[in-house]
Design a protein around this nucleic acid. Structure first.
Ligand SMILES: [Mn+2]
Ligand SMILES: [Mn+2]
Ligand SMILES: [Zn+2]
Ligand SMILES: [Zn+2]
Lengths: 158, 158
DNA sequence: TGTTAGTTAGCATGACTTGCAAATTAGAAA
DNA sequence: TTTCTAATTTGCAAGTCATGCTAACTAACA
């Protein structure tokens, strides 16, 4: 994603208003590597701008995504994560703490879906799952990421 | 996924009842390569067994998943897809017709997340997107897969 | 055939998003 | 600076997908 200043320029050119809500989000997202959810951004934004609407967060995130200023990262479970880092990279999701880390697949050559099958691949999404370094060592801390609650219901610890 | 007969055996051993609902699903899922949603299975099942509950479909699918008899395929958008094919393979999702096809990555060597970062990768999910052979040629048929409706709202065709 | 633990069916509830319309406001013109 | 208006923000309803809960039901076995 571009800098808040650059984005302001882009918005002006498209006769989109430079509202304080938008500017705040530009700032919160710039260089943000936490892969936040709309909800988490809402909480943070609310501190600096009490009263801002969650609806507006979704709205703005959607606009930025449409403008290719950020990408949506779908990790299967839970809310969509937003990523201002548009460079080609993949993600590692920690099943323990829920954190998402960027992963650059330098080694693995470009994947190719069998074009022989007639598929026109436009996008490839890769998500690694496991436990991050911190969660790996030490405590078996409480699981944050809920993996299909129901599917584990039967494990009744009696 | 194993055959309906084999599954019956497994269920008996685990003192799980062999209900007609379960048997029906065993049959509908066996060798099913359509990557159905719970809803689509429900519709088909309803024809052979009017009155069957969608809740039961979800319930049974969850159990089978827990038993590693089928896997959940998350394509980001829409409902979860269920896949009785447990062999290691990836998926291609057609953005035009929504169909999901199996893809065997023979060429691409095993991906590895930088273990140097201390990540313990347990699972890798890969989803290819694009247009399938049929949708690629001929008509630019109506899009079935809805990609973030809101994000395209602004494209007002006036 | 009776007994009972395992299942099903319905409906409520929850998580995450989007639709909608009234109220508000940024930005340009007067 | 005041006025004007199209763009935006809000709050709330509604939608989609999935799970929680529990009364009614039944497969399986003695
Ligand atoms: Mn990222
Ligand atoms: Mn498959
Ligand atoms: Zn972690
Ligand atoms: Zn297609």
């Amino acid at each position: 994603m571009r800098t808040p200043t650059e984005l302001a320029q882009v918005f002006r050119e498209k006769q989109l208003k430079l509202t304080p809500q938008r500017q705040l989000l530009f700032n919160l997202l710039h260089d943000n590597e936490s892969h936040p959810t709309a909800e988490s951004l809402f909480e943070i934004a609310s501190k600096q701008m009490p009263g801002i609407s969650l609806r507006t967060i979704y709205q703005t995130l959607g606009e930025l995504a449409e403008m290719k200023e950020l990408q949506l990262v779908d990790i299967g479970n839970g809310a969509t994560r937003f990523d201002p880092n548009m460079s080609e990279h993949q993600h590692f999701v920690c099943d323990s703490c829920g954190a998402i880390h960027d992963v650059d697949i330098t080694s693995a050559p470009k994947l190719r879906a069998g074009s022989a099958d007639g598929f026109a691949v436009e996008e490839i999404g890769v998500v690694f799952r496991g436990r991050c370094g911190r969660c790996n060592q030490g405590d078996q801390s409480r699981q944050t990421t809920k993996r299909s609650p129901g599917l584990q219901a039967k494990n009744k610890a009696s």
